[in-house]
C-alpha cells in the first residue's frame, strides 16, 4: 500500500496547477523511491517529468509499485478543497480503484477526506538520456517568466543564444523585434537574484513561446529556474523542489527548414 504524508498540501497543489494545462490524464508512479510522473502534452513536443522523492514526504511508505492513473482536472478540484497550510496524506491500496486524500489542518481539528476514482492509463514511458548540456543557465524564475510573457506579445517563437558574454532571448514578429540579454550576475544579499551561466560551447536554439509561458506556471514552486541547452536537443526547464525533488519540462526545438 501507499501512504505518503506531505507537510504542505500546497506543494502538490502548485505542481498540479502548473502542469494541468499541458497534460490531462497521467499516471503517478509510486514506488519506494517516491512519486514520479512523466507525460507528454497532446501535441507531443513537450514532456513533463516530476519527481517527488520519498524524502519529500514524512512518513513515506510504498510497499510495491503502484500506478495511480489520475485525471488532473479532477485532482485539482479536490486539491482546491485543501487549505494551503494543510497536511496532505495520499493513500492507496496495492491494486487500487481510488486514491484517498486526507487534509488535516495544523491549527484546528478539521480533517477532510476525499477519494478520486482512478483510470487505466496506457502511457508510453520515454527514456531521457543523461545529457551534458552545452549551456546551463540558472536565473530567477520570475525573470524567466517575465521575459517569456514580454516576448510573446511580439512573437510565437524565441531564439535563446548562450555565449560567453551572456544569454540573449530574442524574437521577431509582425510589429517588430525584441531582445532581452542577461549577463552573469551575483547578488550577495539576495542570491535568489543571481544569474549563472555555465557554458562549454555557444548554443543557439529557437523555441515556441506558448510552451515556455505554460512551463512558467511553475514559477511559484521555486525562486530559481534552470535552463539547460545543447544544440539540436530539447530544452530542459527545471524547477528544483526541497529534498532533491523536481519538476522538469522538456521542449523540442524549432528547426529551420
Amino acid at each position: 500500500m501507499l501512504e505518503a504524508r506531505l507537510e504542505q498540501a500546497n506543494l502538490l497543489k502548485k505542481v498540479v496547477d502548473a502542469i494541468k494545462d499541458l497534460v490531462q490524464d497521467c499516471n503517478f508512479d509510486c514506488n519506494d523511491s517516491g512519486v514520479a510522473l512523466q507525460a507528454m502534452d497532446n501535441s507531443h513536443v513537450a514532456l513533463v517529468s516530476m519527481m517527488l522523492k520519498a524524502e519529500s514526504f514524512s512518513p513515506f511508505r510504498c510497499d510495491r509499485n503502484i500506478a495511480l492513473g489520475i485525471n488532473l482536472t479532477s485532482l485539482m478540484k479536490v486539491l482546491r478543497c485543501a487549505q494551503n497550510e494543510d497536511i496532505l496524506t495520499l493513500k492507496a491500496e496495492d491494486a487500487p480503484d481510488v486514491v484517498n486524500l486526507v487534509f488535516e489542518s495544523s491549527e484546528s481539528d478539521r480533517l477532510s477526506e476525499y477519494d478520486i476514482k482512478l483510470m487505466d492509463i496506457d502511457q508510453e514511458h520515454l527514456g531521457i538520456p543523461e545529457t551534458e548540456y552545452a549551456a546551463t543557465i540558472t536565473m530567477p524564475s520570475a525573470e524567466f517568466q517575465r521575459i517569456c510573457r514580454d516576448l510573446m506579445a511580439l512573437s510565437e517563437s524565441v531564439a535563446i543564444e548562450a555565449t560567453k558574454d551572456g544569454v540573449k532571448f530574442s524574437c521577431s514578429g509582425d510589429i517588430g523585434n525584441g531582445a532581452v540579454t542577461l549577463r552573469s550576475h551575483t547578488n550577495v544579499e539576495k542570491p535568489d537574484l543571481n544569474v549563472e551561466i555555465a557554458l562549454s560551447e555557444p548554443v543557439a536554439l529557437t523555441f515556441s513561446l506558448k510552451y515556455l509561458v505554460n512551463f512558467c506556471k511553475a514559477s511559484g514552486l521555486s525562486s530559481t529556474v534552470k535552463l539547460c541547452l545543447s544544440n539540436e536537443v530539447p530544452l530542459l526547464v527545471e524547477y528544483g523542489l526541497a529534498s532533491n525533488s523536481y519538476l522538469r519540462f522538456y521542449l523540442a526545438p524549432k528547426i529551420g527548414d
Partner: peptide
C-alpha cells in the same frame, strides 16, 4: 519556415 519534431524523436521508449 520552422519544423518542430515530436519529443519522441529525441527520447526513445524506455
Amino acid at each position: 519556415p520552422f519544423h518542430q519534431a515530436p519529443i519522441t524523436t529525441y527520447f526513445c521508449d524506455a
